[in-house]
Design a binder for these strands. Structure first.
Lengths: 360, 360
DNA sequence: TTGTATGCGTTATCAA
DNA sequence: TTGATAACGCATACAA
């Protein structure tokens, strides 16, 4: 007589009993390992079918040490860019018979740390992380130390040796900005969601997100190539919503030498930025030129269509997941994979208005 | 001497040994159940810390019967609507200390069935499903029968008794179409991604997606209220990509009595539709009016801004997850929750061009 | 409060 | 090819 109740679900023992074989044989037949005669296999299958038996994957995992699931940690699935990345990951995972445990951290480091812990506790076979911070990465290194493979995607961290799949977006950004310069722009502003740790921004300053860092580098390189001054006031951060974007834009337009071109760090910023411009009655590209550093379908639709840097987001997800599976299958770590975004030229870039220098 | 090697990870036994207490006491201290003296708790915590011990959630789950994770089955996370829903679900889950196993099925019934099986095998504590089909739902009923709670979201199935959270979009659609009628439209077309099982569409026909069914109902009701003929040729399906949308639009414009207003079933269709209109040089709302049955931020940005039905997608996710947790906590099932979308009037609806009837 | 022994549902080992 | 039994890592009933 059992002292404790089971879960009430059908187990392999029930199947074995009905099939008239030992538990071990039934397990072998169901699991497809070891050797079992065709006749027994038939009987077991039949019994399993009849009882509606489904193996308990948890119990299996505890024995095999493999959970057949991947942990994915990302800041914001709501951002269409990450939506697509997630889709790429999920497709590869499904193809491998794995499923995906998704943790959305809202770009909070504390939540990211918690999420990683939870995922490790659940013994995921590997982790895909898009880190919130370049520098606060203790929890990520812990994972590697624990022996479970990790692949970083989209963003870098400040130590090397980990697998990572990234966009080579510095170069594409440089190209896009070169396009602005070629059109005659000298005052080019950059607007990002990233919240700066420091009060103001200084060129060359370390930024805590590699993706933002790359973008800024690309812009600066383009400017320096043409001997154009890098003006810190044209690098604006903390553009987290419509209101802050509008505020930032308003301040920059009041500058003695306002920007003639605006570079939006991603599609969300671009959306708010374009709405703000529209609200102010500014016309693109007549009054101001615009470039967005992440393409989205609607960029083609607005008037004028927006010049953008198109990132292969789905591919990023696919490659990251593929790299992780290679690690799970025993491959060496430390590999870096770089994907190449491309500039898609549309109609939002034109010549700057001849701006008049304020006297004094 | 152990015959089999463990996973190599630190277990509660190791912690117990180092702390100099029994395995049970260590487990109690770590798990926070049963009674343990403060002194032992201290020693155990200390030992766990030192060894870097992390409990194996799988082993715990197998005992408790609770996995602390939710399964989410959805057709397409890439669709921003579902992206937001997922975010809502994920936030509630995290608040409850659960994590989310996400299965993206690409709207394939076979994949949906497989996904549900996998999730059940992994003993998720509950499932949130956005079903691909109203009628092929055996796998969903199986879940309920297995005793694990399910909440359907966004879409209905053809049997009652299950928990479900849905948009009351028939009514909002009726309102939006009423707006078109009020503006003078009589030829109103509807374009949906749904692939029809039958060859053509007949008014009153059963559709396999409740969300599409509701939209069609809303349109028909508005038309009937104004004694306008419901013309099957104005209901077009299978608009899965830009090309097919363009083809559908082309055919409809060649009709003897072409539509003067277009209703896009969701934001993806709307995007393709607007691009197609733009490509053809048709102007909104002068040449044709447009309404989209799912609002997205860019709808406000395009020229003219697009009148849309705004669905509280994040709320849908939140409510669905909340309902599921209530079921997990023992609440009765069979509840239906309805959310109310609203028409957001913008500039894409105008008076129809006086169209000339073809003679003969 | 503590320790022992057993159970969870599976896989792995070993002898038959 | 089979069956008995240990092992996985933890939770829990029971006795101490």
């Amino acid at each position: 007589m059992a002292r404790r109740q089971g879960t009430g679900e059908v187990t392999i023992s029930d199947v074995a009993r009905l099939a008239g074989v030992s538990k071990a044989q039934a397990a072998r037949a169901m699991g497809g390992y070891g050797s079992v005669s065709n006749e027994v296999k038939q009987r077991v299958m039949q019994a399993a079918q009849e009882l509606g038996y489904r193996p308990n994957a948890l119990a299996r995992s505890i024995n095999t040490g493999k959970s057949q699931s991947l942990g994915v940690v990302v800041g914001d699935v709501e951002n269409p860019y990450f939506g697509l990345v997630t889709r790429g990951i999920s497709d590869v995972a499904r193809r491998h018979g794995y499923d995906v445990v998704l943790a959305n951290t809202g770009e909070s480091l504390a939540d990211e740390e918690k999420a990683v812990k939870m995922l490790l506790d659940k013994r995921v076979d590997g982790l895909l992380i898009c880190p919130t911070s370049r520098t606060s990465h203790g929890h990520i290194l812990d994972v590697e130390r624990s022996g479970r493979p990790v692949v970083l995607f989209d963003r870098d961290i400040s130590v090397s040796g980990l697998d990572m799949v990234q966009m080579r977006i510095a170069e594409a950004t440089r190209e896009a900005v070169q396009g602005l310069i070629d059109a005659g722009h000298r005052r080019i502003a950059y607007i990002s969601t990233l919240k700066l740790a420091t009060d103001g921004f200084a060129p060359g300053q370390d930024l805590d997100l590699s993706t933002v860092s790359q973008r800024v580098d690309g812009i600066c390189r383009a400017l320096e190539d043409s001997q154009i001054e890098v003006d810190p006031v044209l690098f604006q951060f903390g553009a987290s919503d419509r209101q802050s974007v509008d505020g930032i834009l308003g301040e920059m337009l009041e500058l003695a030498e306002p920007p003639t071109a605006l570079v939006a760090s991603d599609s969300l910023v671009a959306l708010d930025l374009l709405l703000s411009l529209k609200g102010r009655g500014l016309r693109i590209p007549h009054d101001v030129s615009v470039v967005m550093l992440d393409d989205q379908p609607w960029a083609e639709l607005v008037e004028p269509p927006v010049t953008a840097v198109r990132q292969p987001a789905y591919d990023l997800g696919e490659q990251a997941a593929t790299a992780l599976f290679e690690r799970i299958d025993g491959a060496e770590g430390g590999r870096e994979i770089w994907l190449t975004p491309h500039v898609v030229t549309r109609g939002s870039v034109g010549q700057p208005l001849g701006q008049v220098r304020q006297p004094g």
